[in-house]
Design a protein around this nucleic acid. Structure first.
Lengths: 209, 209
DNA sequence: GTCTATAGAGTGATAGAC
DNA sequence: GTCTATCACTCTATAGAC
């Protein structure tokens, strides 16, 4: 039996995802849940506390994901790693879509999230570095090239849902996001890299059920 | 002498850029301008009318930009073309940053904007196609590669400001956006392309004053 | 824990005087 | 065109009964 507090969080996430953070009031959440606004504010003094708890959830799931990461960053493992990450983006869609408003209204959360972003970009850079060291990718063609590539890869993944919505596409179509990401990598593969690549990520496209 | 109507638009843009679309009320705009709310609603019946007029401005400036485009899509011309486009992004920052909220609250504008986005991506794709035809870029390495590249280039440029803000960077740093964009192109250059490229975009980085 | 009732601030939009 | 005054509404947050 889920507690009222947990039910409030679940309903909040659902409504935020549906209507956007700024368009959901305490009242809306209470109505949707069938409880009184007074009851809701008993559990969460204000909206900021709700957002904070949701962010804690996101962080928790992120950490759980990170702990499952395969240690060997082969192309196949990297590709497989993307799946749960993209699912997380979708599950807490509103947070990533309305992140600018989160930043304006709840700067403390934005600060925490910022360090997480840096961690992610560094992580991607480390995968590229490993691929270069293991002879799968060529040395960077110009200074800072792979640092920028890591950044761009992060940007593609992070803003993919965003651009889909703006372009009026119903489906998140993460397969194309994934392909676009690998498109950045393939021109930089060595012969060895091509051989290793051919048998892995492209064959691992995961179709939505 | 600017009319009150024009002054309202100028002030609205400034406040929207500063605080975000949803955090600026009719009252705020009137106060900032030193006129009464009643006067403002005389000129603009509601907020939606203000946004609409601002979007007309954006479209107007876009058209004016498009008319100045150099017909020959050399790398140098493409690079030069980016400058005024990125300036437009900054001038009407709020529109591009809060585009999702614009979409939710003013769907008609979102619809118009959507066709413009498609036009932009098609335009980028045409530049790439020309580069391939003129022997500066290699034929696409896999089916749909250049279509995805055009899309990704658009994504980088469109969400650059967004990501800078989320990452807590004060400066928009469009030079890095530009370099990241060319990074996508350089691995696909032919020998001829490299020769043509070397003497153009990289030497055209424009520093902010 | 949960409810009802309400205070207090902010919102868009209108009426009517000048 | 511009003002003041105000209505009707929504929001968060609190008080107090059960």
């Amino acid at each position: 039996m889920r507690s009222t507090k947990e039910k409030i969080l679940d309903t909040s996430i659902a409504l935020f995802n549906e209507r956007g953070l700024v368009n959901v009031s305490i009242r809306d959440i209470a109505n949707e849940l069938g409880i009184s606004p007074g009851n809701l504010t008993y559990h969460f003094k204000n909206k900021s506390n709700i957002i904070n708890d949701i962010y804690e959830r996101i962080v928790g799931e992120r950490i759980s994901l990170a702990s499952q990461v395969k240690l060997i960053p082969s192309f196949a493992n990297i590709n497989a790693m993307l799946e749960p990450l993209l699912e997380l983006f979708e599950k807490y869609r509103f947070f990533y879509l309305d992140i600018l408003e989160v930043r304006r209204a709840y700067p403390e959360i934005a600060g925490k999230h910022q360090s997480h972003i840096n961690f992610q970009i560094d992580f991607i850079k480390a995968q590229i570095d490993y691929s270069v060291e293991s002879g799968n990718m060529v040395p960077e063609p110009s200074r800072g090239f792979y640092a920028r590539m890591a950044h761009t890869v992060w940007l593609i993944l992070s803003f993919w849902m965003n651009q889909q919505i703006i372009r009026g596409k119903e489906d998140a179509d993460f397969n194309t996001a994934r392909t676009s990401m690998w498109d950045m990598v393939t021109p930089l593969l060595t012969e060895k890299g091509k051989a290793n690549f051919g048998i892995t990520p492209l064959n691992q496209k995961i179709d939505k059920p």
